[in-house]
Design a protein around this nucleic acid. Sequence first.
DNA 1: CTCTTATTGTACTCCTCGGTACATAAAACT
DNA 2: AGTTTTATGTACCGAGGAGTACAATAAGAG
Lengths: 204, 204
Amino acid sequence: MAAGRPREFDPDEALDRALEVFWHRGYEGASLPELTKAMGINRPSMYATFGNKEALFRKAMDRYAEGPAAYVRAALERPVAREAIEQILAGTVALLSDPTHPKGCFAVQGALACGEASEGIQKDLADRRMAGLEAVRKRLERAKSEGDLPDDLDPENLARFLMTIMHGLAVQAAGGATRQQMEQVVKLVMMVWPKNVKRPDRKN
Amino acid sequence: MAAGRPREFDPDEALDRALEVFWHRGYEGASLPELTKAMGINRPSMYATFGNKEALFRKAMDRYAEGPAAYVRAALERPVAREAIEQILAGTVALLSDPTHPKGCFAVQGALACGEASEGIQKDLADRRMAGLEAVRKRLERAKSEGDLPDDLDPENLARFLMTIMHGLAVQAAGGATRQQMEQVVKLVMMVWPKNVKRPDRKN
DNA sequence: CTCTTATTGTACTCCTCGGTACATAAAACT
DNA sequence: AGTTTTATGTACCGAGGAGTACAATAAGAG
């Protein structure tokens, strides 16, 4: 089989650049000229490699989940629930205030409100956020079954509370809040989050 | 002075309709055809009355602050800080789950991320959110001076915590969260919010 | 009734958008 | 070598965006 002319760019790297633009501008606010310029390629190369703007955005979503947002999954693996939540919030603040990324959260500002043509993207992003909620909820269910969470607290409500904080911080960051300001909010949250029930080193 | 042909629509009502469209679609996602159709007028009438799309959006911002979002100001006038905060959160949930309005918060999703051309709008909306933060902060400063807030709590941090909850709820609502789900979050917040220090009826 | 003024509706303008045709270039295969 | 295959770059396409020119219309002023 003939292999043809080799590609002159790294698709993963180009995707990372595209993610940054979508992150900064949102799906609709990111134009193809701005995207391709950031990616360092021309338009036909983008279409040949990624399909179209929508497909590029979806691949950027995956990239975000596996890259910048991977800290959530990692944090949830902690044996003690309270530490998992603490680590999630620390990771959130770190990401939101990382000067090497656009301000805010890609999953929030990628397509929070949009024209009719982008409603599919909007829904998919909302589903991703919902998946995050589910992951936290499941982790808190586990904590409850392990006696790692007070009996009178509902994992679903607590998970939604945590997502509310995360998404609220994302809006603060988009509006220019500093790392210190967000850290203070997290500090308040952790002051009121249920204290450990089980010993840190007992299980898992 | 000759008065000319009379206007055939009510500007305030038309502005309300425009607000709903901007609320639903965001600044960039709202097209002029969709706007004017909802307003029940044609394009030249819109330009003659409001200036242009950007001016229309800014007037919609004012309308939002004085209308749907006016509950914040009202709540802050309550004599007891904890009741003020409770009322703000109740009002937030009520607004976010009001089926007569688009899902979510206009001030958050109006222009959270956008193209370069709309950055002025984006900044102005962020300033509005910041003004809300300032109003809450001032109210909590007052509470502190009145002995209505524990000494070890910083009004600024607490205010930002509250805004984080409000904006986080706005994202939840945009993603389809129900009134009940949001109420549960608020319940959790109020469980941990500092209890009254002064008597409810002493001052003011 | 006529003149003036301001709104209305249609039909445009120009611009940018996402997406693509097509010719050229650079590799592998025979 | 020549052929095949794939990527690149330019230059385009139709669609939809915001904004406007202009003629028609509806009131008050004289």
